[in-house]
Simulated assay, not measured.
Amino acid sequence: MGLAYRRVLLKLSGEALMGDLAYGIDPTVVDGIADEIAEIVASGVQIAIVVGGGNIFRGVKGAASGMERATADYVGMIATVMNAITLQDALERKNVLSRVQTAIEMKEVAEPYIRRRAMRHLEKGRVVIFGAGSGNPFFTTDTTAALRAAEISADLLFKATKVDGIYDADPKTNPDAKRYESLTYSHVLQHDLKVMDSTAISLCKDNDIPIMVFDLSVKGNVKRAVMGESIGTIVGGSSYEVR
């Protein structure tokens, strides 16, 4: 199968990096992700990554525990940088050139986020990993993923999760939950389907960036998704039927 996309953005949740651990980073999982990304880069696809930090710290949970929300979100942003550097190390051990860019300046460990520099890295075949979210509290890493996808002119945003798509109910509690193959942005927003926050969905809608939601835990799924296989749920404009 030929290339389905020229440039993509992959959103990795922090929880996806935990594997079966209760907390932190599973090196085996990160190594497997790096293997798949290496294959994608070798095929000629340009790939940027936004990584979350929920495996280390979640701002919302910190705020719920009594922290001031903005402070908790900044701690969460720093956690994403830890994940980004870990992923960069795994990639470079596989001879995949990569750069970490952060929205909060940490010049000793990463480049500051500069859009033109990020695009230049992608054009040279380097993987760009975006850390520290958007640099602003009260915004999720899903929204950051939508924002960066628009800024780098990505063909599609991939959201790698622990479920194999979007359902009409929680499949963990409802055995009759139906998985959608495709959805419109409007349907997701109107029915408040919790795949991404509404700001992220709206950003993708306004910039006509389709979203593919798929299960990261199945080996080979990242490559299958990027190559255009239908392995999850795709969300797009009015040309995408709800089915």
Rank of each mutant, 00 (worst) to 15 (best):
L3S: 14
V45G: 10
T233Y: 09
V51N: 02
N207T: 05
D35A: 08
R58E: 02
D168P: 04
S230R: 15
G125L: 05
G220C: 01
I49N: 08
M196H: 06
A146S: 14
A225V: 07
S182C: 12
V226I: 00
A154I: 06
K205R: 11
I211L: 05
V128K: 02
T28N: 08
L87V: 01
T71F: 14
S186T: 13
L3F: 12
I85E: 06
K205H: 07
R6L: 08
Y240P: 07
L189H: 04
T143Q: 12
V163Q: 08
R7H: 15
L91G: 01
G165N: 00
R179I: 10
Q101R: 14
I231R: 09
G24H: 15
N207A: 06
A132S: 14
E123W: 13
V218M: 05
L122C: 07
N95I: 07
V235C: 11
A38M: 10
I114S: 09
K11M: 01
S65W: 06
Q46V: 14
D164M: 00
S182I: 11
D192F: 10
S98T: 02
G14R: 00
S134P: 03
C204R: 05
D35K: 07
A160W: 05
G59Y: 00
P210L: 04
E151N: 03
A4E: 13
L157I: 11
A79M: 09
R117V: 12
L193Q: 06
E36T: 06
E181A: 14
G135H: 04
S98Y: 05
V41Y: 08
V235S: 12
P171V: 07
S13H: 08
